[in-house]
Amino acid sequence: MKNDDKKTKARRRFLAGGLGAAALGALAQGSTAGRRADRPVWQLDPYLCSQCGRCATECVLKPSAVKCVHAYAMCGYCELCFGYFLPGARSLDESAENQTCPTGAIRRRFIEEPYFEYVIDEPLCIGCAKCVTGCNTFGNGSLFLQVRHDRCLNCNECAIAAVCPADAFVRVSASRPYIFKGENDSTSGGLS
């Protein structure tokens, strides 16, 4: 019995020590966390993106939480948009076989001669980046991919980030959750 008491006491002392150390460690970590950014969320850097197509297939959500975003201010409003039309399109009209987008998620609207506006229909977009490739190769690069935070589950390890061949996925601060291309850098994300 006495022996047991001794053991219990030693155990408590040990525990108190361990808990104290743990709490101190947590506090130290916490204080730095408080000074620095708040919660990290996943985002992809469009300047690093290689348009490999894995955003469409690897996300735990189907369809992916990665969608194409249009930086309108960068767009040339071309009639012959290389994000919109397939190379070798038979005619420059809205028929599906001429479009790069496999789901027809890009809508175009005539503004004035000779300009067209291109809008992403987000629920249809699967994040395959086919239009991004077209726009980057022959256009202004105003179409690019972004993790959309109204959809993203913010997995502890992003399934796309784990296999992104260009290492374009980064953790950014939740208060600046987007990395936008172009001039509207006021809304752009955590990378500087």
Binding site: V41, H70, A71, E117, H149, P177, T187
Partner: peptide
């Protein structure tokens, strides 16, 4: 015509 800006829905 006014150039629109893309939406940036916030995380939780």
């Amino acid at each position: 015509y006014v150039i629109p800006t893309a939406t940036t829905p916030a995380p939780n």
